[in-house]
Lab assay of single mutants.
Amino acid sequence: HSHMSHTQVIELERKFSHQKYLSAPERAHLAKNLKLTETQVKIWFQNRRYKTKRKQLSSEL
């Protein structure tokens, strides 16, 4: 499990705020920019979407 830097997370968050789903080319581009693997980016987005979904569910209770 590799640790992401604060800067990388900020960039991922910024991208996520604009779009929740990335196409393969977008993911490849973002990964390259942030010096991450595409898998890391993919998993981060999956986890981030899951967290957002959970938060929405709990706020509706």
Rank of each mutant, 00 (worst) to 15 (best):
H1G: 09
H1E: 09
S2I: 12
H3R: 10
H3I: 08
S5N: 07
S5Y: 07
S5Q: 04
H6G: 05
H6M: 13
T7A: 15
T7Q: 13
T7R: 09
T7W: 15
T7G: 08
Q8C: 11
Q8S: 03
Q8I: 07
V9W: 13
V9N: 05
V9R: 10
V9P: 01
V9T: 09
I10H: 12
I10S: 12
E11K: 06
E11H: 05
E11Q: 10
E11N: 04
E11D: 03
E11F: 05
E11W: 05
E13C: 13
E13W: 06
R14M: 08
R14G: 04
K15Q: 11
K15M: 13
K15S: 08
K15N: 05
K15C: 15
K15T: 10
F16C: 07
S17H: 13
S17D: 08
S17W: 07
S17F: 14
S17G: 06
H18G: 07
H18D: 09
Q19A: 07
Q19W: 07
Q19G: 05
Q19D: 06
K20L: 03
K20M: 06
K20P: 12
K20I: 06
Y21H: 06
Y21V: 03
Y21G: 02
L22C: 07
L22W: 02
L22Q: 01
S23G: 04
S23W: 02
S23T: 11
S23L: 02
S23H: 02
A24N: 07
A24L: 09
P25M: 14
P25D: 12
P25Q: 15
P25R: 11
E26Q: 06
R27Q: 07
R27L: 14
R27V: 15
A28E: 08
A28R: 11
A28W: 05
A28N: 05
H29V: 14
H29D: 11
H29W: 10
L30W: 01
L30V: 05
L30S: 00
L30E: 00
L30P: 01
A31V: 00
A31K: 00
A31F: 02
A31H: 01
A31E: 01
A31D: 00
K32M: 11
K32I: 09
K32E: 09
K32R: 12
K32G: 05
N33T: 14
N33S: 14
N33M: 15
L34C: 05
L34I: 04
L34Q: 00
L34S: 01
L34P: 08
K35V: 05
K35Q: 13
L36T: 02
L36K: 00
L36C: 05
L36M: 07
L36A: 01
T37Y: 03
T37F: 03
E38T: 09
E38G: 02
E38N: 06
E38P: 10
Q40F: 06
Q40D: 05
Q40E: 08
V41A: 01
V41D: 01
V41G: 00
K42E: 15
K42F: 09
K42D: 10
I43E: 11
I43M: 11
I43R: 09
W44I: 02
W44Q: 01
W44D: 01
F45G: 00
F45T: 00
F45R: 00
F45D: 00
F45K: 00
Q46S: 06
N47K: 12
N47F: 10
R48Q: 14
R48P: 01
R48D: 01
R48C: 08
R48T: 04
R48L: 07
R48H: 07
Y50N: 14
Y50T: 11
Y50D: 11
Y50P: 04
Y50A: 14
Y50M: 15
Y50L: 14
K51H: 12
K51E: 15
T52H: 14
T52F: 13
K53N: 09
K53S: 09
K53G: 09
R54F: 08
R54N: 13
R54D: 12
R54W: 06
R54P: 09
Q56R: 11
L57Q: 13
L57E: 11
L57V: 14
L57C: 13
S58T: 12
S58V: 15
S58R: 07
S59M: 07
S59R: 06
S59Y: 06
S59W: 05
E60M: 06
E60Y: 05
E60R: 03
E60S: 10
L61P: 08
L61A: 14
L61R: 08
L61D: 14
L61E: 14
